[in-house]
Each structure stands twice: as structure tokens, then as C-alpha cells.
């Protein structure tokens, strides 16, 4: 029986987020909060492993109280339990402070039920970093395996997982000791339309919610904004384009002008010629 934990996040839907054209900033209120699409694949993969090998799927998130919705979404996909850490102390965390807080929560979950496998999505659509998963693995001192596109076999008795990692031009077959952490690619699976029994269970489900004081051995200096080495010093709009130089005249003139310019910029091509040599 496996215990798989998927780490998930609620994010603003950047596909439909509206920008304030004057300030060039994101109108966060305009974007509905959704389960990070990559994480849906992580949860789905955990559910599939549960169906294959038996066990329990838990999900863990850090976020403000409304993030309960993202946990319910995971229950719809088929997760059994949901855990959320929610506290002002966690606010403003960068990837390092996030992986610290999540690790503390994972330790607490593992005390109740030891964890065999942790699955994360490739990255979040709001942060775009993909750094939290490997960070958690390092803190727990278990192997991080990123770019996972297929899980071939999980053998809990032998403590071995075999999987495919995506490469730029193919994939590699890797074995790892367990427990370990996977960051999965989007194409690892398709998330199917949830069943009605799962929908009903999710609508009634209340996750376990922990504040910072519910966690053990926490060094508060490593949490939230205080515990984040990186800070955003400034946000600025990229320079507005100046507008191009227009090539006038009849079509034939325009074409010959353009050709002239291209030949002037011949060095653009030669740089490439050298760098590939």
C-alpha cells in the first residue's frame, strides 16, 4: 500500500488574467483562482498509481483560506485526503521558504502515515520556476526526479521506482530508490472528467488545516518573506517599441531595399556559423 502525497498550489488563471493597460500590472481580482494545471496532472498520476498498486493519495498545499477550493478540486480528481498549511507567517515566501514550510508539513503528514512518494507538477503558471519540487526533495534528502513523463514501475518491497525522464531529444530510463520525489510533465497523463461520486465527496470534504503552530521544529526565521533570500526589487514595463523604419515605394523597391538591409546584416548569420562549429 503506497502513500503518495501530491504538492499542489492554487494560482490565478493567467490565461484569462486581465492587464491594467495603464500600469501594465496584473489585475489579480479579474482572474479566477484555479488549481495549477500542472498540479492536476500530478494528482491524476498519484491516483493512477493508487489504482495500480493500492494505497492512499494525499494532497498538500500552502495558501490562504480560499485555497481550500484547489484541494477540493484534487478530491474531485480522486485524492483521498487534503492538507493545507495556512498562516500569515508563510506569506511572501519565495521558492526556498516555500519548500521549507512544505517540508515541515510533509514531516507531520509522514508521522501519521509514512510517505512513499511525493509528486509535484512541473511548475506553477504564476511563478514559472519549477524550483519548489527539487527543493522539497533536497530538504527531505530524497532523490528529486524532474521532467518525469512516465512511471514504469513502483516496487515498494524493493524500494525501487523506474521512470522515464524527458530529454530534449528523447527520454532516459532511470531507476531511483524510494521514497523519492517526481516533478511530472503535462503529457504524463490526461486528467479525465471527474465522476459524480468524486464530485459529491469533494463538495462535502473539509481538509486538515494547519497553522504554523501545528507544525514541529519550525525555525520561524526561515518562513515567509523573512525566510526568502530573493526579493523583487522593482517591477518595470519593458521599453515601448519605437516603431520600425518603413520601407516605401513600389513592391519591387521595397523588396530591393529589404534585401540590401539583409546583406548589410550578414554578420548575424556568421555568428551562428561559428558557434555551431
Amino acid at each position: 500500500m503506497l502513500h503518495i502525497v501530491a504538492c499542489i498550489k492554487q494560482v490565478p488563471d493567467t490565461k484569462i488574467i486581465k492587464m491594467n493597460p495603464k500600469t501594465n500590472t496584473m489585475d489579480r481580482a479579474s482572474a479566477p483562482a484555479i488549481l495549477n494545471p500542472y498540479d492536476a496532472h500530478a494528482v491524476e498520476e498519484a491516483v493512477r498509481l493508487k489504482q495500480r498498486y493500492g494505497g492512499t493519495v494525499s494532497v498538500l498545499t500552502m495558501g490562504p483560506p480560499p485555497a481550500v477550493k484547489a484541494i477540493r478540486k484534487c478530491i474531485e480528481i480522486g485524492a483521498d485526503e487534503g492538507y493545507m498549511i495556512s498562516d500569515r507567517a508563510f506569506a511572501g515566501a519565495d521558492t526556498l521558504a516555500t519548500s521549507y514550510a512544505l517540508t515541515k508539513a510533509l514531516n507531520k503528514i509522514a508521522k501519521e502515515r509514512p510517505i512513499d512518494l511525493i509528486i509535484c507538477g512541473k511548475m506553477t503558471i504564476d511563478g514559472d520556476t519549477g524550483q519548489v519540487g527539487p527543493g522539497i526533495a533536497r530538504r527531505l534528502d530524497i532523490p528529486p526526479l524532474t521532467s518525469v513523463k512516465k512511471i514504469v514501475e513502483i516496487d515498494k518491497e524493493k524500494g525501487i521506482a523506474i521512470l522515464h525522464r524527458k530529454l530534449e531529444d528523447g527520454y532516459e530510463v532511470v531507476s531511483s530508490t524510494m521514497p523519492c520525489l517526481f516533478s511530472v510533465e503535462k503529457d504524463i497523463n490526461e486528467v479525465p472528467y471527474s465522476t459524480m461520486p468524486n464530485m459529491l465527496r469533494a463538495a462535502r470534504y473539509n481538509p486538515h488545516i494547519w497553522s504554523v503552530n501545528d507544525l514541529e521544529d519550525v525555525d520561524k526565521a526561515q518562513l515567509g518573506l523573512k525566510g526568502s533570500p530573493t526579493i523583487v526589487s522593482s517591477v518595470w514595463a519593458p521599453q515601448k517599441p519605437q516603431g520600425g523604419q518603413m520601407l516605401d515605394g513600389k513592391a519591387a523597391d521595397q523588396v530591393s531595399q529589404l534585401l540590401g538591409i539583409m546583406l548589410e546584416k550578414k554578420e548575424l548569420f556568421q555568428v551562428k556559423g561559428e558557434s555551431t562549429s
Binding site: M19, N24, M26, P229, S233, P238
Partner: peptide, 15 residues
């Protein structure tokens, strides 16, 4: 680029 690429963010690691 942050938030879909319409604005840029400069990030520092001071400590």
C-alpha cells in the same frame, strides 16, 4: 518577465 511577460521584475538576493 513576470505575469505572462507584460512586465519585467528585477530580483535580488541581498543576504
Amino acid at each position: 518577465p513576470a505575469f505572462g511577460g507584460n512586465i519585467m521584475a528585477t530580483i535580488l538576493c541581498k543576504k
